[in-house]
């Protein structure tokens, strides 16, 4: 295993030290492993927290700051954080206007956030939850834990963060969050597996000439594997299942071509070019985009495409100022 770490057990604690040292937008509670905004939000505004297993950086800690999250809970690598962490974060960030929990649809995340929300409700804090379940690679939702929450999470945190920042109340923020979640779709692929530090070797073996289509963000194997194709055909395998699942024509669309952690930017640009060409053919008009590493899977090589069907209001909120380590504009 080739990693820049001290020991598998210390990865999260050590990385949080670096986050604290580098990111002016945040302060770090090391005991609880929560990343908070350096300057808390003004009283009366809805607060937003998220969290999940580590290994997906910059998500979520890199999205804490003005215009986006108020706090992010860092779990162990690929392991949902615990209810204690979320309760601590919820209690700390609440300004009286309530707290939105942004949860990705995994059994562990759902259960831990659920327990935290129950405890927060007990403590008298109004909590709403939005669950992101946007991964079209998971087909038969009836026979599975449901679609995984992946790329839409990033775009949702930005849009909903802007709404909270401008003072929308908890009900409105929750409705908006659900709307973004309902209108987001993602699809991913991998050229290589990632290696979980405590496991010490790749989660799955992928021969030199094979790729895995329909992967998530935890090194779960995908839906199937096949020989590595060219960028054009890979782009098609990302675009087609998304467009089959939701009609993206006739509305502005926000697109994200995301790297899984080990993919060089030159390849992401190249893939984005192919994706845009296919979307244009299909009559889909991209209004805003991100190309880069936003929701990663440790050192996995590969990429994912996320489309969110937006409206003018969502685009306005997208364009609103944001100041975090992972996304920044207007400030």
């Amino acid at each position: 295993m080739k990693k820049l770490i001290n020991s598998p057990d210390d990865v999260i604690a050590d990385a949080l030290k670096g986050v604290e040292a580098s990111d002016d937008n945040v302060r770090v509670d090391h005991a609880n492993r929560v990343i908070y905004r350096a300057t808390p939000k003004e009283a009366g505004k809805v607060a937003i927290i998220s969290g999940g297993g580590s290994g997906h950086e910059p998500m979520h800690g890199g999205f804490v700051g003005i215009g986006m999250l108020d706090a992010a809970c860092a779990g162990q690598v690929f392991t949902s954080p615990t209810p204690d962490q979320m309760l601590e974060a919820t209690t700390t960030v609440d300004t009286g206007a309530g707290v939105l929990h942004i949860v990705k649809n995994y059994t562990g995340d759902i259960m831990n956030f659920e327990m935290a929300a129950e405890m927060a409700a007990d403590a008298g804090i109004p909590v709403e939850t939005v669950v992101v379940a946007d991964d079209v690679a998971v087909q038969d939702s009836l026979y599975t834990a449901g679609r995984r929450g992946v790329g839409t999470t990033v775009l949702l945190e930005k849009i909903v963060g802007a709404a909270a920042e401008e003072g929308q109340d908890l009900g409105a923020v929750k409705v908006l969050a659900q709307k973004v979640a309902d209108n987001g779709r993602s699809m991913g692929m991998a050229l290589t597996s990632c290696t979980v530090p405590s496991a010490g070797k790749p989660t799955f073996d992928l021969p030199e000439d094979q790729m895995e289509i329909g992967i998530g963000i935890h090194g779960e194997p995908g839906r199937h594997r096949e020989p590595i194709g060219d960028a054009k055909s890979i782009a098609k395998q990302l675009v087609d299942p998304i467009l089959q699942d939701l009609d993206f024509t006739g509305s502005p669309v926000i697109a994200m071509l995301n790297g899984m952690g080990g993919t060089p930017l030159i390849e992401l640009y190249l893939m984005y070019g192919e994706v845009v060409a296919l979307l244009k053919e299909a009559g889909v008009e991209i209004s805003r985009n991100l190309v880069g590493n936003y929701i990663t899977s440790l050192d996995m090589a590969g990429c994912s495409l996320t489309l969110v069907k937006a409206d003018e209001e969502m685009i306005r909120l997208w364009d609103a100022p944001v100041k975090t380590a992972g996304l920044r504009w207007g400030l």
Binding site: Q76, T79, S80, T82, P83, G108, M111, N112
Partner: peptide, 10 residues
Amino acid sequence: VSTVGGTSGP
């Protein structure tokens, strides 16, 4: 619950 996280913790 407070040290495992994930699915098996809860």
